[in-house]
């Protein structure tokens, strides 16, 4: 959450709730919605570490709101974030641990594990298709996010097939 918030602030100063709305609009319904409390806590920490600077703005009928902007260190952190390549997801896979350990334990059967996992992935795939259909067609970022998730799942399903070939 830290770096996406910093990146949003690179565009210009904003307050916590604006940042939450901006994230939601950008990523669409498929992405787990950030909780506003979590955003305020993160902004607080970023301020303490000197990456952003906050200023209270008085509002006539409501409590003051705090507007944040990036510091020079914050700008640097955002630049560094974009320059770093990102670790690929799923280097550790809990399902793989189950599959590897099943024969040792005698409490689960590998093929049943594979079948159950496949059902789970297929159901997730179905949910993603529904999300893609419900999401605004013109929100290309949100559509690409869902498509990426589907391609990951397709790879996981292909790998389950390989497991079945080897273990059947």
């Amino acid at each position: 959450m830290r770096l996406p918030l910093l990146a949003l602030l690179a565009k210009g100063p904003a307050h916590g709730y604006e940042l939450k709305l901006a994230l939601e609009k950008l990523l669409g319904a498929a992405y787990p919605q950030p909780n506003v409390g979590q955003i305020y806590v993160t902004l607080n920490r970023l301020e303490k570490s000197g990456l952003i600077r906050g200023e209270d703005v008085a509002q006539s009928s409501r409590p003051n709101k705090r507007i944040y902007e990036l510091t020079e260190a914050g700008h640097e952190a955002v630049r560094a974030w974009f320059e770093e390549p990102t670790d690929e997801p799923r280097v550790r896979d809990e399902f793989f641990m189950k599959l590897a350990l099943a024969p040792e334990t005698g409490v689960a059967d590998q093929i049943s594990l594979i079948n159950r996992q496949r059902r789970h992935y297929l159901n997730t795939m179905r949910d993603l298709s529904k999300l893609a259909a419900a999401e605004d067609r013109d929100n290309r970022v949100a559509q690409l996010l869902i498509e990426g998730a589907m391609l990951h799942l397709q790879a996981d399903l292909d790998w389950l097939e390989r497991c079945q070939e080897e273990l059947e």
Binding site: P32, N115, R119, H120, N123, T124, D127, A149
Partner: peptide, 18 residues
């Protein structure tokens, strides 16, 4: 497998998208 059955975990999407 029948898909979209009741009682299944629906957190899958969020996990995949994290």
């Amino acid at each position: 497998a029948t898909l979209g059955g009741e009682g299944r975990r629906t957190s899958g999407v969020a996990d995949v998208l994290e």
